[in-house]
């Protein structure tokens, strides 16, 4: 036992010596401290990619990104346990109230777009598109649809097997709200997983499958899946970088956010990190499979952060169909 402890100490010492050799030249202002980030598994990789680049320039800042889901992240954030919360949907009223009770003020910053992609198995040739009404018919809480022919007349009388994001994910919240009109309202008899790779495997191995999950997972598995264009009333549109960015892939594209604690934002290392985040998001966001926001929105977000505007633009307002530019302009 004593021996293995000594080996541990030796490895630790060796690694510290190794790190000491690298100086933080290249960083603008020298900052140190620690930044604790938690929340959505969708946004996590973006924050981590920013953290990766930021810590290359600022070796003295300790960045830790944890993944507890959007809801779990807000729980810790509103208890003051984290500095930044990753969120794949806007903060909910109850979560904002909880934060207020604990004296936590937050700055809401959009960082990227995510498109929820609807996919079928490549062997399925008959589904050309789906309208929002058809999706609602399939996914509504009271839905009894078991066959493709029940979705649209003319489609074969074959069974339909459903796959989708698990109930703890922001993806599920957003999908159910966009399609069924109410977050969390959904039929329960589908294959659910918090792990989108499980869903990719399921759909790619099941000819009767219809599934939904994050756009990044479709992009990485294009050869195993067939994307279904969605008709939200203005013609069928498939998710792509362009259609997500200009808002035409509606209603299944969504902005994703980080929430920065106001108190944490006053610490120089957190402020430097957030500035770095908004500045480098346009190049880092696509690298991890998401669509960057228009440059205008990053500029508005930066202004919002510098002015220290707290609160969410989504609370107590009807925001459906509004572009991010309109929501954040002058706020």
């Amino acid at each position: 036992m004593r021996r293995s402890v000594r080996i541990t100490v030796e490895i630790l010492l060796a690694s510290m010596v190794g790190l000491a050799g690298i100086d933080s030249a290249g960083a603008g202002e020298k900052v140190s401290g620690s930044i604790r980030i938690d929340g959505s598994s969708t946004v996590g990789p973006i924050s981590a990619a920013v953290g990766e680049e930021f810590s290359k320039l600022n070796r003295d800042v300790k960045i830790a990104v944890a993944i507890s889901g959007t809801g779990g992240g807000f729980k810790k954030f509103s208890a003051g346990e984290t500095d930044i919360s990753d969120a794949s949907r806007p903060i909910k009223d109850a979560e904002a109230k909880k934060a207020k009770e604990n004296g936590i003020e937050f700055i809401e910053l959009p960082v990227a777009f995510d498109g929820i992609s609807m996919v079928v198995n490549p062997a399925n040739k008959f589904v050309d598109k789906l309208t929002v009404e058809e999706l609602k018919k399939i996914w509504a809480p009271e839905s009894k649809i078991k066959l493709w022919s029940e979705v649209r007349t003319g489609w074969p009388e074959k069974p339909i097997h459903l796959y989708g994001a698990g109930t703890d994910s922001g993806t599920f919240d957003y999908f159910t709200e966009a399609i069924n009109g109410k977050a969390q309202a959904c039929r329960a008899d589908y294959t659910a997983s918090e792990d989108d790779n499980v869903l990719v495997k399921g759909v790619s191995g099941d000819e009767s499958a219809l599934g939904f999950f994050g756009y990044a997972y479709y992009v990485e598995n294009k050869d195993k899946l067939r994307i279904i264009p969605i008709d939200g009333g203005k013609g069928a549109i498939a998710p792509s970088d362009d259609s997500i960015n200009d808002g035409t892939y509606s209603p299944l594209s969504r902005p994703i956010f980080i929430y920065v604690s106001k108190a944490a934002a006053e610490r120089p290392e957190v402020a430097a990190f957030v500035r770095f985040y908004l500045e480098h998001a346009p190049t880092l966001v696509p690298e991890v499979g998401f669509v960057p926001l228009p440059a205008e929105v990053y500029k508005l977000a930066r202004e919002r952060f510098e002015k220290g505007v707290t609160g969410s633009v989504y609370l107590g307002k009807d925001t459906t169909g509004k572009k991010l530019e309109e929501l954040y302009k002058g706020s």
Partner: peptide, 26 residues
């Protein structure tokens, strides 16, 4: 509350951390 993506080596018992199983799962 072990983190998943961490960009420093722990220097003391009060530091944030991640562990092998978490990395693998991630």
């Amino acid at each position: 509350g072990g983190a998943t993506m961490i960009f420093f080596t722990p220097e003391g018992p009060m530091d944030e951390f991640t562990a092998l199983p978490l990395q693998i799962y991630n």
